[in-house]
Every structure is written in structure tokens, then in C-alpha cells.
């Protein structure tokens, strides 16, 4: 550890005690996270393995673990991808609107309202999803089935209650929207004024300025924000459990009442009445979700790494 001399200071001054304490605290904090994560991973693995190995007749779902978890993984990814596909463009738009388009005074209020929504408990999103959104979408789904029914996505038969995976994705999108927006807004606001003004002075329109000055600077931040959003979308439990009419099948049909379930929702729905090895299988499905996030983040990291040049602290 002593070899880690600060790269920023190449002077020959002796290390000050203050520096050593501060750096020690930082490293300790980082290691705490490592330990926590190792703890969670260990817990998931130790508790999960018996569930993976359990034979079909020992668990309630009555299939091997792979058969059990594959539809869930499919549903989880489907819901999260749909949600992010809806949320990210809107979130970036909203963040840009608040940071660069809206009148200052209005922008502050709007930012405030959006932050607030990050705090609505998922139960409330769930109730809102059932009682308002699902009902409102029933005619829309009927229309989709009639006009776009030839596309497998909208093959129908349209759900009579509107509680489909598409509805669940919309609810998820609404839930992650404030998270992504709030972070993107802060990052957009941090764009160096000089870059922006230089672009404008060269005759760029506002959009060209955004393309030239804001987005390159904020790209890593946008991806970070999206990953946080994805984390929430993947792990969201209660809202999906309440809104989705889940069956544990694999289907790309987005508007029927037979939908794939998600890992997190399935845990919430089954855990209460589960005993013995079924519990282990559920925890193992949590481990799968964990690995899923691992992979997705790995991919995202790879993208960010390649575009590091614009970061302020390089």
C-alpha cells in the first residue's frame, strides 16, 4: 500500500499525517464496500446453491432450477429493457429542458417536483398502476391488437384488465425517470460554461451547442445514470408484483394477460409461503439477478471506458 504515492503530487515533500489519515479513511470506506458486497455474494451463493441443485420434486415449482429461472430472466430483461427504452430518451429530454431550455425559475421548481417523485413508495406506484394506468390502457391495447395484431408483439388477445408486461414497463419507466433525470440534470448543469459559450459564439444553434459541448462532456454520466435506473428497474419488487399479471411463461406478446414474471417480483410473490429448498431456489434466483446486473454493468463499463477523453478529472 505504501507504494501508492499520489500521482497528482510529484513533489518531494514528505507525506503529511493529515494526508495519510484521509487516504486511509478513503481506502477503508472502499474496502467496507468490498466486504459488504462479498458478504451479500457469499450469502447469496451459500444459500442459493442448494436451491440450484435441488431436484424437481423437492421444490414447489416442480422443475429444475434452469427451467424455473429462464422465463424469469427473460421477463426481467424484457421489462427492464422496455422500461429503459421508454425512460432514457424522455429523461434526457427532461433533464436538458430543465438545465438548458426552461426559464430559470420554472426549472428550479420542476427539478424539485421530479426529485420528489423518486420518493414515492413503490406501493403507491403499484396502486396507481392498477387503478389508473392499467384501466386507461385497456382501450389502447384493444386498438393495438386490432390494427397491429400482425406483429407478434401485439398479437393479443388484449388483456381485459390492462395488467400486462407493457403496463408494468411503463410503471417501471415512470419510476426510473426521476432517478435518471435528476442525475442527468446535475451533469448537464456542470458542463463548462466556456465550452457552451464558445460553441454559441461560433454560430452554433442551441441544439448544435448541446451536441458539441454538453453530450460529449456528459456521456459517461448519462450512462451511469441509466445504469442506476436499470438497477432500479431490474430489482423493483412491489410495483411489478402488484401491476403485472404474471404467469412465468416466455412470450413476446406485450398486451395479453399471460405475461412472463420478473425475478424480483417472483421472489416477492412466492417468498412468503415458501419453505425449505424452495426458499433456497428463490435466493438462487436473486443470485441470478445479481449476475445479470454484473453482466449489464460490465458491458456499460466497457462502453464508458472507451470514451473517457472528455471527463473533467482525467
Amino acid at each position: 500500500m505504501t507504494s501508492i504515492q499520489s500521482t497528482a503530487r510529484k513533489r518531494s515533500t514528505p507525506t503529511r499525517p493529515g494526508d495519510r489519515i484521509f487516504r486511509g479513511t478513503s481506502v477503508a470506506a472502499a474496502l467496507t464496500i468490498l466486504a459488504t458486497l462479498a458478504g451479500v455474494a457469499l450469502f447469496l451463493t451459500v444459500e442459493g446453491i442448494p436451491g440450484v441443485l435441488a431436484s424437481p420434486d423437492e421444490v414447489k415449482h416442480g422443475t429444475t432450477f434452469i427451467d424455473y429461472v429462464v422465463p424469469l430472466v427473460f421477463g426481467t430483461l424484457l421489462a427492464a429493457v422496455l422500461a429503459l427504452a421508454m425512460a432514457i430518451p424522455v429523461a434526457i429530454g427532461v433533464a436538458l429542458y430543465i438545465s438548458h431550455y426552461a426559464p430559470r425559475r420554472l426549472a428550479a421548481t420542476l427539478g424539485y417536483v421530479i426529485d420528489l417523485l423518486a420518493a414515492v413508495p413503490s406501493v403507491v406506484y403499484g396502486v396507481w398502476g392498477i387503478s389508473f394506468l392499467a384501466t386507461a390502457l385497456v382501450p389502447v391495447y384493444g386498438w393495438l391488437e386490432r390494427t397491429l395484431g400482425f406483429i407478434p408483439l401485439f398479437a393479443g388477445p388484449a388483456s381485459a384488465t390492462g395488467r400486462t408486461i407493457l403496463t408494468a414497463s411503463i410503471v417501471l419507466a415512470v419510476m426510473v425517470l426521476p432517478v435518471i433525470t435528476a442525475l442527468c440534470r446535475e451533469i448537464f448543469l456542470q458542463t463548462p460554461r466556456l465550452h457552451e459559450e464558445a460553441a454559441l459564439a461560433l454560430g452554433a444553434t442551441r441544439w448544435e451547442m448541446a451536441k458539441l459541448a454538453i453530450f460529449p462532456y456528459a456521456r459517461s454520466g448519462i450512462i451511469s445514470a441509466s445504469m442506476l435506473g436499470l438497477g432500479r428497474a431490474l430489482g423493483e419488487t412491489m410495483a411489478v408484483a402488484m401491476v403485472l399479471s404474471a404467469s412465468g411463461v416466455i412470450t413476446v406478446n406485450l398486451i395479453s394477460s399471460t405475461n412472463p414474471s420478473t425475478i424480483a417480483a417472483n421472489i416477492a410473490l412466492t417468498f412468503n409461503e415458501a419453505t425449505g429448498l424452495t426458499v433456497n431456489a428463490l435466493i438462487a434466483s436473486g443470485l441470478v439477478l445479481f449476475l445479470l446486473t454484473f453482466l449489464v454493468n460490465f458491458a456499460a463499463r466497457a462502453i464508458v471506458e472507451r470514451r473517457k477523453d472528455f471527463s473533467g478529472a482525467n
Partner: peptide, 23 residues
């Protein structure tokens, strides 16, 4: 650490609860 922190964002909340309980 950076990578593991990302992974941590994907812990389903119920798993966090179970972990705390086990601990």
C-alpha cells in the same frame, strides 16, 4: 470497486433484507 458498486445497484431490495436478517 467501481464495478462492484455497479453490481450492487442490482441487488433486489428483498435480498438486501434477507442479507441483513442473516447477518
Amino acid at each position: 470497486i467501481r464495478f462492484l458498486v455497479d453490481v450492487m445497484t442490482g441487488i433486489p431490495s428483498i435480498v438486501a433484507g434477507l442479507f441483513a436478517y442473516a447477518l
